[in-house]
Design a protein around this nucleic acid. Sequence first.
DNA 1: TAGGTAACTCACCAACTGGTACAAACTCTC
DNA 2: GAGAGTTTGTACCAGTTGGTGAGTTACCTA
Lengths: 230, 230
Amino acid sequence: MSAPPSDSDPTGAASSPLSAVEPPERQRDAERTRAEILEVAGREFADSGFAGARVDVIAAKTSTTKRMIYYYFGGKEQLYIAVLEQAYARIRDLEQQLDVEHLDPVAAIRELAGLTFDHHESHPDFIRLVSIENIHRAEFLARSAVLTGPANPALDVLGAILDRGRAAGLFRTDVDALDVHQVISAYCVFRTANRHTFGAIFHRDLLDPACRAHQRQVLGDLVVAWLTAG
Amino acid sequence: MSAPPSDSDPTGAASSPLSAVEPPERQRDAERTRAEILEVAGREFADSGFAGARVDVIAAKTSTTKRMIYYYFGGKEQLYIAVLEQAYARIRDLEQQLDVEHLDPVAAIRELAGLTFDHHESHPDFIRLVSIENIHRAEFLARSAVLTGPANPALDVLGAILDRGRAAGLFRTDVDALDVHQVISAYCVFRTANRHTFGAIFHRDLLDPACRAHQRQVLGDLVVAWLTAG
DNA sequence: TAGGTAACTCACCAACTGGTACAAACTCTC
DNA sequence: GAGAGTTTGTACCAGTTGGTGAGTTACCTA
């Protein structure tokens, strides 16, 4: 058995300096194979959970074979961790992009909440993976060196808004950025994570497009009213 | 194979009219066996999910055998549904007990939120089951005749409080009882359901007893500020 | 163009897992 | 206390599932 390929090696585009325009459509492409497995595995794990997902099924939905999964990732567990890491990496990339510094504190908080709302709504698979990971008491997440690092950069943006709001005498001072983040996250995550049981019991689909604008408004009202209450 | 025993038959205490004081500690006790299986299965499913839980493990943690699980419940799936039904039944029993009609609307809403908070905190297994069920898109819950009935009675209490608050000109009128319930539930469920990933990423344990009072206060402030904001 | 290695294929397995056949043991009724 | 139905224990099975041994082919470099 040969050793699995290194993780840090990029797509191999730098290999042939002459045909730089188009890497001539290699039949064998480690990076593409790896990415495809990760993509399919992400869907399967989000769909069925760690225990429910089947390595054979993941392999079947890939253009490669089960043996390749073990070749590249080593096992079901490592594959799952790789999926988790990829999912968090994507979310963090998106979070970096938010730019609300030019708004006044109240508008900024409302905008931040709204963007978080949109963000969660358009990434249901991520939320499912997070739910699954919580069922496992985050044991896999804890096993990943990448994911236990320093806290989320999105929190800094929120902290800055709160500071500005407090300096202007607009915001309450008995909560911190993490409290606010928790409230926003809770509302946004709940809509997706508990959609099905909530719908079955209360007969309201939390992700019904007809309710979307109302729900988004509610979140903004909620957070702003809370922070500005004296 | 004989037919499984009827569900509606009570504990058999009515069988022997003479020894009414103490059903003489029967070695064979269908109801007790059934209840014990359900109890253990509840813990196992909450712990490992539907796919992750093992019938053999459930049986081993019981004082009876795997054969009994199939005798009483028919299969893993039916056992899981029975667990779900029991869990929801217990929660609804508790919800019936809240009595906040004597309080003014603002105090009543705060009390309701606080009780919901306490309630969720003391039933983590229930929340785990709900999370698991959502991962399965509530397919098992939908298959249960018991659980798809009319909506939660807790909603009526909430609706009454809102009506009183609006009549007194205290509460906003652009949200309904379900919106409020959603906000409260989201906050309460999030603390337990996302405890582990949140803790791993932000290094704050949402269920840390030291934070408990603060979190409970936040929920009350949040809901009251929102509803009373003009 | 030869050779080395990364990428890949195929066939296979041991353990697990939900489920069951069968019979024994117990309880109640008459 | 005999007969009938209920409850329980033992042993077992067939399909599934994560995982692997070993050989093969494409790609790159010298």
